[in-house]
Structures are given as structure tokens and as C-alpha cells.
Design a protein around this nucleic acid. Structure first.
Length: 163
DNA sequence: TACCCATGCTGGT
DNA sequence: ACCAGCATGGGTA
């Protein structure tokens, strides 16, 4: 059952986190606002080690935002998108970087970086929320204002909170 | 504050 | 090959 796909949803202080994966990789992770309608699923038993490890790291992270999340992911995207996503590994919890700074590191442009981050299939695991605009928060998950940027702000606040 | 445009990457035609 | 649209940034008034 090593390839057994699994998924779970988890209520977090910043929204409902839904994670999908198999016993080798995380395949997707999305964070959506918690509404009365969509209650998180009950959590199924884990078919394999990666499931348990994922749950463990997420619990640790939401208990203390300074805890680093480091999980194997399998993502599909253009070469450029992969370049942007892997560049995020260096940004630790509580740290941020601007679109422009990241763009200079990989010889691209700020707006192109934003385009790639918008397509991040594994929210939180690839910490796209740690890239902000030069003049403010910047967008999240395709929105520049509204509920989704609030999730971004919530994550950043959680990571910088004193424990 | 607002407007304008350079920017590089994407998706559709 | 072209063109419009972006989770931006910098310049100018």
C-alpha cells in the first residue's frame, strides 16, 4: 500500500487546511477560510509514515509557528515555477522576502515571481506566504484583497508571535 | 494620492 | 508569433 493516496482536512487558526498526498509525496495543500458550512472532515487513520509525519509537523507548526515544516512534495509546473518554488526553501518561519528581492536572486521580475507563487500547489509546505510586496502584504492564492490575503496575514502573524 | 510604464512569464488565439 | 493579463516596483507630479 505504499502508493495509497490519502487526504485530510484540518481546522487551523488560519482556516481549513486540506492536504492530499501518497506515501511518498505531498501532492496538494490548500488553505481556505473557515465557514459554518464547510466543517473539517474527521481524520482517517494514516496508511503510512508520510501521513503520520505530515500530521505531526503540522501539529507542531500550529502549536508554535517557529517550527519548520519540511516534507517531500511532488509538484508539476514550468521550469520557471519550479525555480521560484525551490527558492522559497531558504525563507525560515517568521522571515519574509519581497517579490523584488526574490526576483533579483533568480534574475527575473517581481511580477513574474508573483505569477509563479500564485500557482503554488502546496500552500504552507512551499511557504509562498512569506513573500510580500515592497509596500505591504501582497496577494495570496490569486486575491489581492479579501479573505485569502487575510489567511496570509494570519500565517505571518502566527509565525512571528512570541511563544 | 494617483497615474504610467518597464518587467518577465503565462495562456489563448 | 502576437497579445492581454498578472499575488510588482519604481518614477513622476
Amino acid at each position: 500500500m505504499k502508493f495509497a493516496p490519502w487526504a485530510f482536512s484540518l481546522a487551523t487558526p488560519c482556516g481549513v487546511l486540506r492536504v492530499e498526498g501518497n506515501c511518498y509525496f505531498i501532492l496538494s495543500a490548500t488553505l481556505t477560510p473557515l465557514t459554518d458550512e464547510q466543517q473539517p472532515d474527521s481524520l482517517p487513520a494514516g496508511p503510512c509514515e508520510l501521513y503520520n509525519e505530515t500530521r505531526k509537523q503540522l501539529d507542531a507548526y500550529f502549536n508554535d509557528g517557529r517550527n519548520r515544516i519540511d516534507l517531500p512534495v511532488m509538484t508539476s509546473g514550468s521550469d520557471f515555477q519550479q525555480r521560484v518554488w525551490t527558492a522559497l526553501e531558504k525563507i525560515l518561519p517568521g522571515q519574509t522576502m519581497t517579490y523584488g528581492q526574490l526576483a533579483r536572486e533568480i534574475n527575473s521580475s517581481a511580477q513574474a515571481v508573483g505569477n509563479a507563487l500564485r500557482e503554488n500547489p502546496v500552500a504552507l509546505i512551499i511557504p509562498c506566504h512569506r513573500v510580500v510586496a515592497a509596500n505591504g502584504l501582497g496577494g495570496y492564492a490569486g486575491e489581492t484583497e479579501g479573505a485569502l490575503p487575510k489567511i496570509k496575514q494570519c500565517l505571518l502573524a502566527h509565525e512571528s508571535r512570541q511563544h
